[in-house]
Design a protein around this nucleic acid. Structure first.
Length: 294
DNA sequence: CGGTGCACCTGTATGC
DNA sequence: TGCATACAGGTGCACC
């Protein structure tokens, strides 16, 4: 469930259960997720207080009282079950009937105040790591990460500078976390549609030869910001994997204009186009061939 | 170096 | 019903 809006939604859901609380017990049910857990993972977390829970791009970052940070990436199917005495379900978490299957529960945090947070990940593309707090930005996960699209650095001028001279398609450039960090397949499709830009156009085409922004670069910066802001406000998107959630996870999927709408009419009034699906670098791209120009 | 394609893993939907 | 195939929100790495 994990583009920026979904991760931010999860962060907000986990915050009350985790922030300011000490980890009293860790259960780690396997030696690895996508990567092996770091050495003595459970021991290094047990007894630590979580001073804050933050987000960087698609990562969750728990700052710990031990001088380390717990970094969590949700991959494709990572999600959290949150159980606290105050509420059995929190925004951004999934819900499960008591006693229901737990075969993909990989990590369980027990926290002060009888709170419990369970990390569940069917495909295990997610991972967790512990890194020193000092020099967090230089750790191997964050070094080389591009700009935060909801920060104050995203602008038409900045995107033009990043994309200038690139022949990779816009779709690929927007998915490249080294340039802009946090977009994924859904929100790239949606932002390109809103900016009326063709996903196969060369990334460099939004800039002049000298790297100055064209009008399309400004449009793109604005639509990225807009779609992410709206999605965060909606609590992210809930896709097929989460059909059995209780609905607290978000409803932005109802606002998709192109994603997963192959064969449906373009929503632009008077356009008359049909949403089309193509495959770019092995992943589905949805777009309107009439609205979106190269 | 820039760009592309596949591998990683499990579950579900679809078609024969 | 059974079985084969395609596809799914991500990304690290091998390869041209």
């Amino acid at each position: 469930m994990p583009e920026l809006p979904e991760v931010e939604t999860v962060r907000r859901g986990l915050q009350p259960a985790m922030e300011g609380r000490r980890i009293t017990q860790m259960r780690v049910n396997r030696p690895d997720l996508r990567f092996p857990f770091p050495a003595r993972f459970a021991a290094r977390l047990t007894g630590a207080r979580i001073d804050s829970l933050e987000r960087r791009a698609k990562y969750l970052v728990a700052r710990l009282s031990t001088g380390e940070a717990l970094i969590m990436h949700l991959g494709m199917t990572g999600r959290f079950l949150i159980e606290t005495p105050e509420a059995l379900v929190a925004p951004g978490a999934f819900h499960r009937e008591p006693g229901a299957g737990a075969i993909h529960d990989h990590v369980i945090f027990s926290l002060e105040g009888d709170a419990r947070v369970t990390y569940n990940d069917v495909r295990r593309f997610g991972y967790m790591d512990l890194v020193p707090l000092d020099g967090l930005a230089e750790c191997r996960h964050f070094k080389g990460l591009g700009l935060e699209p909801l920060g104050n650095t995203l602008s038409g001028a900045m995107i033009a500078k990043l994309f200038a001279g690139k022949f990779a398609p816009l779709k690929a450039a927007l998915l490249d976390q080294r340039l802009i960090a946090g977009l994924g397949n859904i929100y790239v499709c949606e932002a390109l549609f809103r900016a009326r830009l063709h996903p196969e156009a060369p990334a460099g085409s939004i800039a002049t030869k000298t790297g100055r922004p064209r009008a399309s670069a400004h449009r793109l910066a604005e639509t990225i910001r807009d779609v992410l802001t709206e999605a965060v406000a909606a609590g992210g998107s809930t896709l097929r994997d989460f059909a059995h959630t209780d609905g607290t996870l978000g409803y932005f999927q109802h606002a998709f204009r192109v994603y997963d709408r192959e064969g449906k009419p373009c929503v632009t009034s008077g356009c008359g186009g049909t949403v089309t699906r193509i495959v770019q670098s092995g992943r589905s791209t949805f777009y309107c061939p009439l609205c979106q120009k190269r």
